[in-house]
């Protein structure tokens, strides 16, 4: 249902990636027969679209399934159900082999610059590898492209003979970016690309990514737990909670007027330097276990506005304001109706 709503909003623009009702459940095996006894619902019924050239930010606490979502979107992890479309082509059921030619269009920048680069390869080999795998360029052409790209990301040609251990985190992330961009992809999933970096380096890398986006007309799915970073980078923002998207809207709209209680609390919890923070609402309690999510609205256990309805009916993502979707009963005018309807079923 939520997918339909999303589709309406984006009809006039070019859609690059569309995912609808995507679920990713990890089985938890137990017992003597090792049968799945339960599922971790890492991504639960998520739908959205990403437009050409935009950055869709995905925010949420650790463990809410945002990294899994990134991997499922690229089909690096097979989804449990749902549909993923990339450039009008359904990639949901494509095998690893069938995905290979498509990989040059979609790339990923990883979170940890220390484990995402093979330490036994030189910078040149690292950046060149995608070209060797995906293209038929001659050695000379590859050399040229690599040297061009390494300067684009702010490293020197002399760095090409070095190995990853000789670089700092920020520089390593530049190598990762060069590696992701060398094939000139259209879509890049950035999985917390700066969360492992120092504040001062974060800004450099983010600005580099913004510049490159403009230059190469890139589309980003930008995953982060840092609201400031997402605000800086994104055109639209999706807020994730326990595997579900609870709110999705344009950057301005969500930061100026967050609708979902979870988004409101998240935004209030951004650390600021001013003193008026004392009476801020903070999130109490832990993120519930995705093995056993609360009934109805997943957020109700920590929500200051929770009422009985929230326990029984899972709120669907609906358009509250123009282009601003939230999944919360607070904004449902037919609260009554939904409630009685639920009662009838029971």
């Amino acid at each position: 249902m939520s997918a339909k709503i999303n589709n309406d909003v984006v009809t006039e623009k070019d859609t690059l990636v569309k995912i609808s009702n995507v679920k990713k459940y990890f089985p938890v095996k137990g017992g003597i027969l090792r049968r799945p006894i339960n599922f971790v619902k890492a991504v639960d019924d998520v739908s959205f679209t990403v437009q050409k050239g935009e950055t869709l930010g995905v925010v949420g606490e650790s463990g809410c399934g945002k990294s899994t979502l990134g991997r499922v979107v690229l089909n690096l992890l097979p989804s449990t159900s749902g549909h993923i479309h990339f450039k009008d082509e359904e990639i949901t059921d494509k095998s690893t082999r069938q995905m290979r030619p498509l990989r040059k269009e979609m790339q990923m920048i990883f979170q940890d610059p220390f484990s995402s680069l093979n330490t036994k390869m030189s910078v040149r080999e690292l950046i060149e590898e995608p070209l060797i795998v995906q293209s038929n360029f001659s050695k000379e052409e590859r050399r040229e492209k690599v040297e061009h790209m390494v300067e684009k990301v702010g490293l020197r040609i002399a760095d090409l003979v070095k190995y990853p251990h000789e670089f700092s985190g920020g520089q390593r992330q530049r190598i990762s970016i060069a590696r992701a961009l060398i094939l000139e992809p259209s879509f890049i999933v950035c999985d917390e690309p700066v969360s492992a970096l120092d504040m001062s380096i974060q800004a450099q890398v983010l600005n580099l990514m913004k510049d490159l986006q403009e230059e190469f007309n890139l589309t980003y799915l930008f995953i982060s737990h840092d609201l400031n970073v997402v605000n800086h980078m994104s055109d639209r923002v999706a807020v994730m909670y326990l595997g579900r998207i609870v709110e999705i809207a344009s950057n301005e709209s969500i930061y100026e007027d967050p609708l979902h209680p979870y988004s409101q609390i998240l935004l209030q919890s951004i650390p600021t330097v001013s003193e008026e923070n004392q009476d801020k609402a903070t999130l109490s309690g832990e993120l519930p276990s995705p093995l056993d999510p609360p009934s109805g609205c997943a957020f109700r256990t920590r929500c200051p506005f929770a009422h009985d309805l929230c326990k029984e009916v899972r709120p669907e993502l609906r358009e509250i304001k123009e282009g601003h979707y939230a999944a919360c009963h607070l904004y449902n005018e037919d609260n009554e109706k939904a409630f009685t309807k639920q009662g009838e079923i029971e």
Binding site: L76, T96, K104, F110, S116, V133, L183
Partner: peptide
């Protein structure tokens, strides 16, 4: 390790992933 996922994400085949990574 993420660099294995990284190799998969560029579409490297099994042979390459095993022998290069």
């Amino acid at each position: 390790q993420e660099f294995i996922l990284s190799a998969q994400s560029i579409g490297a085949n099994d042979f390459r992933i095993i022998f290069k990574h």
